[in-house]
Design a binder for these strands. Sequence first.
RNA 1: GGGCCCGUAGCUCAGCUAGGUAGAGCGGCGGGCUUUUAACCCGUAGGUCCCGGGUUCAAAUCCCGGCGGGCCCGCCA
Length: 551
Amino acid sequence: MFAWVWFMANKHWIDELADILEERLRSRGKDVLVFNGGLSVSGLQHVGRLRGEIIIPETLRRILSRRGLKIKQYLTLYTQDAWKGKESQRKAFKDPGEAVKYTGWPLIRVPDPEGCHANWVEHFWGDFGPYIKEFTDGNIEVVTTTDLYAGKLKEFTKKTFGLRDKVREIINKYRGRKKYPETWIPFEPICDGCGRIDKTETTKIIDDERVEYRCRYCGHHGETGIVNGKLNWRIEWVGVWWALGVDFEPYGKDHATPGGSRDSCVDLAINAYGIKPPEGIPYEWVAMRTRDKRIVDMSSSDFTGFTPREWYEVAHPHIYRFLVLKTPPMKKLVVSLYEIPQYYSQYYQAERIYYGVEDPGVEEKRVLLSRSYELSYPDGEPPEKMPEQVPYTHLAVLVQLVPRELWGTEGLRRLRNSGHLPEKPTEYGVKRILETMERASRWVEKYAPDYLKIRLLREPDPRIIGEIPWEHREILYRMGEMLEELEEWSEDSIKNVMIEATKHLSPKERRALYHNFYKLFLGQPSGPRAAPLIALVGRETSVKFLKAVKK
RNA sequence: GGGCCCGUAGCUCAGCUAGGUAGAGCGGCGGGCUUUUAACCCGUAGGUCCCGGGUUCAAAUCCCGGCGGGCCCGCCA
């Protein structure tokens, strides 16, 4: 139809989003724009949290930076929030019963359940925080609400005391019957008596710096500084926008409901504080598929999901970024560590489409996949030449046959022999293969199905041999003899031996024979290619196994 | 009570924004491949597009009304 329409229809969702955002951000007239994301460290920091709060804003930031916008990206940790003491959270401690006493404490004050870090937050941040730079370009500044309360939010708290009536009026619009009374002061101190932040009530503002409060939990009355507490949650969110000057911040679907938290906070920002609320987009959560194929939402406080560290161990961050980018933000993304090989092959396909060596047929698909691929690089861009692609499962098997110290030599030689690598492979391609080998090796240990786990039997097993019919034993024994006499010990000559020994068999019989062949060596009816396997096992051992069938 | 995502082949989904002969991958089946790296190649079967109305020459697609599944919010944050 019209070129314009065609053009629009063939944009990646994130580019369309970037277009809209660019216009709105430019109209704000700021030199440096601010992007933010927010996380409460209530427990397991799973990969799902990378999606909406980190990778999506980071990618938008990079796209818009290329268009000349200056953008600063933050990630805000809600460390002052109360520890809820859910059963799943208590179970993180050796003595869950005793851990009840931390209920209601600010997260940052809850001790590390395993005693290896300064507190709960730092403990669970360990598998997440340090990996952000692997999944992004790393230009993200992490701030905590605890630090903000000691700084800019302190100022905001004072401001809020002055705006009390207006703030109450707006919040009460969203509170149906349970309106806050006129005496309400929107500040929740940490109780000096019991340590809780979720049960205190401010009774009096003493001056700009101090308040009086009472605790509904332990009955303690006291006074404390305004650094020692937090604002009511709706106000706090606006406070973060104000303190950092946020211009864009995505929000999870739990905040997206009309009349919900985002709406009420926008109302507060405009009508109480007179600031322009940030632009935003809602996003769906990430779920995971378990070993037995059940789908469960990842949840921090329920400890369901897996961390960026666990992903990084078995797969490149590129792959996760790719999955996030090819999935529209309001669609549920389901990921599984058991399906890593499939993700690699999807990624390789997108890569081939990007480099133009494969035609997806449908234009929309081409745009979605190749752009998602292009943006999948955490830092920088795809290399000029398409890297060599070796299937993940291939490497998973290879690393089990070649000793680790030979991966970079013998392993690569094997790949050249099998045609996966050319004589002069690209630098990035080789680097990626070596990295994938490390990951595939760990994946085999932790997640691979049994049939991909290759383990040579220590000794020929008489019980297995007993199950092999005599005519097969004859052939296997003969193979052993031929291998023993073989002049040159190479994959090719071994392969010739195997062909020679089985050429008189029908395809069906040959299949049956190889089942027994694999059982003899591995205890299971299938395995890696026979000739390379034998080559690797070595002459002495393979002859020993093969001739054992006739003892 | 309000909102979001979804319903298309056995499974996972694309196609719906912009109406024009129902698609892909996986799985199944048959065959091939000097046995296979959840492989590859060729062929093949398989569908009331959740249901009912409406608009239209024409509806999986647009409109209205239902049904079913999953999820979020309902004054905790």
